[in-house]
Nucleic acid binder design. Structure first.
Lengths: 328, 328
DNA sequence: TTACGGTATGTAAACGATAACATACTAGAT
DNA sequence: ATCTAGTATGTTATCGTTTACATACCGTAA
């Protein structure tokens, strides 16, 4: 069974292709009589216009690329889901690519997407490929940076206030009388990690504590590097009594590491960025900085639709506020 | 900055568009000299062929639809990631749609995807829209059912052995001397739920126990229905001492429910389908039936590529084996 | 010499829509 | 009667590729 084209339908209905097109798109003049007749034929043969041909003619792909570092991290997927919703409503589809935090894969992904002629690009980047991203934006494709930004690029961003949140995380731990606070951070190529570090440092300095390099562990936002982080801290002569962890995956690794090292899970007080699904079942000293990926996604979705509809407002930098949820 | 077309490049290089096409696709005859010359121009202008035009001409969209019931469930996303990998390698892109277990959304999604002329469809369905799916398959689009199947449809399926796994879950609980085993299941519209129920019943009957309806709770695979399930069981006069839960989300809800009811989390022995990320940190009596979404995804990906490459082997029904991981 | 197969390149017709333009009819205004 | 604006429909170029076909050249075998 082969798909019918507009020509077949035109022949069947005894009218021209233009008339079919007008009926399909509710544009131009068509008499009520012919319209019904055409609709009848369309129904009869279950005709669906070829979106590819339409895209070519209109020079609009009706597609949006979305490049994420980890498709299995619910944080990113919640962002993605909200965006997808919005797009689907408007007839756009999303091309997802998971870079697994690998800049080379990211480069390929961007190439792939421009070839597919996406009209917009949503990116939570690895921090590399800056030039390529700028070039994409310059070529007229709308770019929105999600969660992670680049300095010096004039692009729309929708992010969360990492500095503020990290600062409050540290303040919270200081209030609980911790003075030796270990920090498990992401890679400094990524803006969120840089900002979380910066916020933590501000928090410490305002309390009169000099941040020590010894208490800074640079991971890569993966579970494995959370394990490595706690391995590192546990062998210090003067172990930290609290940890600030910069994302949920590393926090998960941190607990796996504690388990591996046979250290009681509640012997260390933890504040973690990002929602940990299980934290509410957990009776350990785990506080989380609740992010709001859904709101992030909705915000991005709205901005995206505005841009796709040709709203050429100046560059937007939207910053959402996460909030700390203390352990029970 | 506007994209260059093959004509622009042809003009720049002083050759015909056919030659450019031949260079791009490494097809037909092109002299080494011209080839280099053309490549030079392509590089210079950073020319990328328009994938949409190519699709139209070749009548191949190079896209695959994937319809999932929950984009934030890592189980499905691990499947998706493996598939996406395989597709990306082959120049295909995936159109993801999240139906949120809503048959009406699923219907729209399928419509949308056929309009976008996907060459194949991967579906973990809600259990409805059977006719539509059959029609899609009949129209020449490759359909692969993932995780969930339909009875009476002659379609490729890649699933897990739910009957076997559920049976062993029950056997495990019986071995631990539980006789009152509550079952929190998914909706019977979905094949996995039917099979998991069936396996559980076989397990009970083989042990000489008559399955009671009172101990069967039909949820809908959501967290919320896990909470409802445990609420229901906890008000029974003769409460179950163990629960078999048919997916990870409901199990999570089950624990949230226990917490809400102020029942100690380890007062009930649980066997759950699906990996629970946190189970390894959990000291409660939680055993899991480990599924292997990655392998599922890879298997689907391989089959998909075979189908896309025109391998017309007979319908495949591949069944993978999950295994039970007892609580510590 | 002629014929032929391999190599190299160009010309032009598709693919399936949309939309600019042309054409024709109707009714009301002048 | 003529003009005009509105309505209704058809014709055809076009979007950017691929590819079937045409053309031409070269060297070698008959």
């Amino acid at each position: 069974m082969v798909k019918m084209t507009i020509k077949d339908i035109a022949k069947e209905a005894g009218v021209s292709t233009a008339t079919i097109s007008r009926v399909m798109n509710n544009s131009g003049y068509v008499s009520e009589e012919i319209k019904q007749q055409v609709l009848e034929v369309i129904r009869k043969f279950n005709y669906q216009p070829n979106a590819i041909a339409r895209s070519l003619k209109q020079e609009k792909s009706r597609s949006v690329g979305i490049v994420l570092p980890d498709m299995t991290n619910p944080y990113f997927m919640k962002i993605a889901r909200s965006i997808q919703h919005r797009c689907f409503q408007q007839g756009y589809h999303l091309l997802f690519i998971d870079t697994e935090e690998n800049p080379e894969k990211e480069r390929e992904a961007l190439e792939f997407l421009t070839e597919k002629r996406v009209e917009a690009l949503i990116l939570a980047g690895t921090g590399e490929n800056k030039d390529q991203i700028q070039a994409i934006s310059d070529s007229g494709i709308h770019v929105i940076l999600a969660d992670r930004r680049f300095s010096n690029l004039k692009l729309d961003t929708v992010t969360e206030d990492n500095i503020y949140a990290s600062k409050s995380a540290i303040e919270y731990l200081l209030e609980k009388k911790h003075t030796r606070i270990g920090i498990i951070n992401g890679p400094k190529t990524i803006s969120t990690a840089r900002e979380r570090r910066q916020g933590a440092i501000i928090g410490l300095e305002e309390a009169g504590i000099t941040p020590s390099n010894e208490f800074m562990f640079e991971g890569d936002y993966t579970r494995e590097s959370g394990i490595e982080g706690i391995r590192y801290f546990s062998q210090l002569p003067d172990r930290p009594t609290a940890i600030f962890s910069a994302n949920n995956e590393m926090t998960f690794g941190l607990y796996l590491g504690l388990q591996e090292l046979r250290i009681p899970l509640d012997s260390i007080e933890v504040v973690s960025f990002g929602n940990l699904e299980f934290s509410s079942l957990f009776h350990h000293k785990l506080s989380v900085i609740m992010q709001n990926p859904q709101e992030l996604g909705e915000t991005i979705g709205d901005l995206l639709i505005k841009r796709l509809n040709g709203d050429a407002d100046s560059v937007q930098n939207i910053i959402l506020m996460p909030h700390l949820v203390p352990s029970k």
